[in-house]
């Protein structure tokens, strides 16, 4: 690991002032320290955010939105009873990611900033299609090989319309999580739309997001029962009124360089009676435009099936016991739904 300066600011202003070219923000470190060990990133200065005040709370704001401080731990958030009760699929997504140890150390801001997985596997001379092409994007890249966004957490955040609160040299701004991630290009290797030197202060879920709590699921398909990145995942939720879907949200994970929210499918579901045919149509729509890379056309099929199942599960209702067992194919089938 390349030597670096280590600074421990005690205010946001100090933190911003400490920024320089080549610096990196350090939250829980579970992703950054790993990247530094592999040499994928080599910051010259680490700015340890752990002493910044006011970034560790989960609060409901006056307008009804929920604000999660950037340094709130992943475990802490998923296991907060109020939060998990209001946003069950977010809790499910967090608990299906990584391991207990990593979730304890990792912060929510760090989670949304996770680096795509394949970037450091393949040196300049290597074949981007080498290895497990299941981890390559099938949407949002126009057929170019690219790693998917590896976060589980971001998938339901996008579905629920979450935003990140950013502070930078030029003041504060909000970015929808849906607009946070991008596909790196040869000219611009950033995998997010943050400008270097900008800092995440908090994540915010809008007031209406809690309205989906009764029908809200995250499903993750992977080739190991736990502690594995997704092959495909989906966050699905809906408000059901008088037997009809008043509103639905559907976002796919692990299929694109960013969480893939599908407005067309959501629109289609609106006003419909929940059922296999309409869900199948929505799932079909969700993969519209998908392109296989390196022979991973099976992944398109799997993503469609995942979306369909997630919609089914969401319609059946959020399980009584939360946090649910991790959002695995098997874990989710054991418990009787509470709202069926």
């Amino acid at each position: 690991m390349r030597p670096f300066d280590f600074v421990r600011p005690t205010s946001v202003d100090e933190a911003l002032a400490a920024w320089e070219d080549g610096a990196a923000w350090l939250g829980g470190g579970t992703n950054l320290v790993d990247l530094m060990k592999t040499g994928a990133v080599a910051p010259t200065r680490l700015i340890d955010l752990s002493r910044l005040p006011g970034m560790r709370g989960i609060e409901v704001l006056a307008d009804g939105s929920t604000r999660i401080g950037a340094l709130v731990g992943n475990s802490e958030l998923a296991n907060d009873p109020d939060f998990a009760g209001n946003f069950p699929m977010v809790a499910e997504a967090i608990l299906s990611g990584a391991s207990g140890q990593i979730r304890n150390a990792a912060t929510v801001a760090g989670n949304v900033m996770q680096h795509p997985r394949e970037a450091w596997f393949h040196g300049p001379a290597s074949d981007p299609l080498a290895g497990d092409t299941g981890k390559l994007a099938v949407l949002g890249t126009d057929g170019a090989p690219a790693a998917v966004n590896p976060s589980d957490f971001c998938v339901p955040l996008v579905a629920l319309g979450a935003v990140v609160e950013i502070v930078g040299p030029d003041g504060t701004r909000d970015i929808p999580v849906a607009d946070l991630h991008r596909m790196p290009t040869a000219d611009d290797p950033r995998h997010t739309t943050l400008t270097p030197g900008e800092l995440i202060l908090a994540l915010r879920l809008p007031p209406e997001a809690a309205g989906f709590a009764a029908h809200s699921r995250y499903l993750k398909v992977r080739d190991r029962t736990s502690f594995a990145f997704a092959l495909t995942s989906a966050a699905a939720c809906m408000r059901i009124e008088d037997g009809k879907i008043a509103e639905a949200r559907l976002t796919l994970g692990a299929v694109a360089p960013r969480p893939w929210r599908v407005a067309e499918a959501e629109d289609l579901l609106k006003g419909q009676t929940p059922g296999p045919e309409v869900f199948a149509t929505a799932a079909e729509l969700a993969l519209d435009g998908a392109r296989a890379v390196g022979g991973n056309d099976w992944k398109i099929d799997l993503a469609r099936r995942t979306a369909l199942r997630a919609l089914d599960m969401a319609a059946a209702g959020t399980p009584a016991e939360m946090p649910a067992l991790p959002a695995s194919v098997f874990g989710t089938q054991r418990k009787e739904p509470a709202h069926a």
Partner: peptide, 25 residues
């Protein structure tokens, strides 16, 4: 690399991977 758990310790009572924890923090 935080991928096996052999280095697990408790920091402030919580289990974490000590390999991904910079001592300086």
């Amino acid at each position: 690399r935080g991928q096996c758990g052999a280095c697990t310790v408790l920091v402030n009572g919580q289990r974490v991977n000590s390999c991904l924890t910079l001592a300086a923090t």
